[in-house]
Design a protein around this nucleic acid. Sequence first.
DNA 1: TTTCATTATTATGTACTACAAATAAATTAA
DNA 2: TTAATTTATTTGTAGTACATAATAATGAAA
Lengths: 238, 238
Amino acid sequence: MQKDLTLAEQIERKILKYISEKGYQLGDSLPKENELAEILGVSRVVLREALSRLRILGFIETKRKRGTVLTSPNIFYGFKTILSSGTLDKDSLKDLYEVRLMLEIGMADFLFLHKEERYLDDLQRIIEEENMTVDSEQLTKLDIRFHSTLYKMSGNKSLYAFQNLLNTLFATYAPRRKDWKVKQIISHESLLEILKCGTADAFRTAMRLHLNTRFENMGTLFPEKTVKAVIEEEEGEE
Amino acid sequence: MQKDLTLAEQIERKILKYISEKGYQLGDSLPKENELAEILGVSRVVLREALSRLRILGFIETKRKRGTVLTSPNIFYGFKTILSSGTLDKDSLKDLYEVRLMLEIGMADFLFLHKEERYLDDLQRIIEEENMTVDSEQLTKLDIRFHSTLYKMSGNKSLYAFQNLLNTLFATYAPRRKDWKVKQIISHESLLEILKCGTADAFRTAMRLHLNTRFENMGTLFPEKTVKAVIEEEEGEE
DNA sequence: TTTCATTATTATGTACTACAAATAAATTAA
DNA sequence: TTAATTTATTTGTAGTACATAATAATGAAA
């Protein structure tokens, strides 16, 4: 196999193995660094590098004196760093933009699965606020809140976290056109109406139409897709 | 703000800043560790920890003697580690399972946008192979290939990489029921037919029906959703 | 001169030690 | 009992030394 792993990377896995073997739960504390280093048979420097890697993935949190405690790994931890580093290439940016559109259209079934009064009320309130303002900036905020509420309503926590990341990303990278509100075919009211007494299938169609401006803008937002998506084989190897 | 960042984390950002300021391109080499440590005014240990963090995110690759070279950050690098660590909690697993369903239904528009003969031919070939076997394992492989081809056809490279990860994940965590093939309402043939001369809207509906077994199985695959998705505010802070 | 094997160089990888800093816990004072 | 202070402990940072591996340089043989 590929044994060109650095020691720190090997230790990283060993720690994960150690955690699962010992049956540690979330919130539990690991042995202190000196002990763990001895247990795993490496220097503290290497151990710390391994711990650092686990920390960036959200597996652990460390505090002085308190030690190393297990936390729920946050899938989007590294994701966030990359997004905020500004080094994301145009293609990846466009990819993410597309993914968001897919998700909003594809989440319909789960919205109906987790439909609750409180969410519908929230949406209703947002719509009412929208009808009371003409301020472009305010409308944008309300629009984000509307869609954000949908993500929350989907009952998918990971998805919600993901969406929050993308919101901040596209707020800077993909600003809206001035006329986005005017050109929308399907309004938020219509979407809410379907949510209340329609079907998932109808919602998908409506959402697709609602997002028409986003689809249209894609060409101008991400003009030069140079690499024509020649996807080479990178099947999931261990 | 939150200045409780460890020095290594600060240096991590400083390095990213340094890279962009110096105008380094992909493939370029960074100064060697000793120099960079001096430039940034920290010890080599801290620098190495920062570099390690960047390496896990895919920003850099390091090799003995050759040094540190810039690489394209892989969004799913950390993702992969978490998935393969086996420490992902049930809820997150279910979340990802759901996300995949959303994506397959929501990708319709992009399939029609990037429709090409070669993809349709690929799909056709897979279907023919399916019709020639009754082996359950073989059919599963072909099913994965069919859907994988769709992801590729979406023209979204990131999405395709993501899907490959999920494939390996759910192959172990969410095995199929014996009768999955029998109970499918919409066949691969039908999907292909719609791709050839249908609409995105029709494809969405068809795909939703095609995935009906997946939707049904979700309850049995992920029984105890303990935490009732009480999503606390974690808006995208910097 | 070309080719191959050997040696030297160099940058990363690992280890050890020492001390700084922060904070939970213990202790003392009010 | 409560608040302030000290103590002990654990992570965070730094410096140094050496191991290891990959490249570059050297030299011998064809």
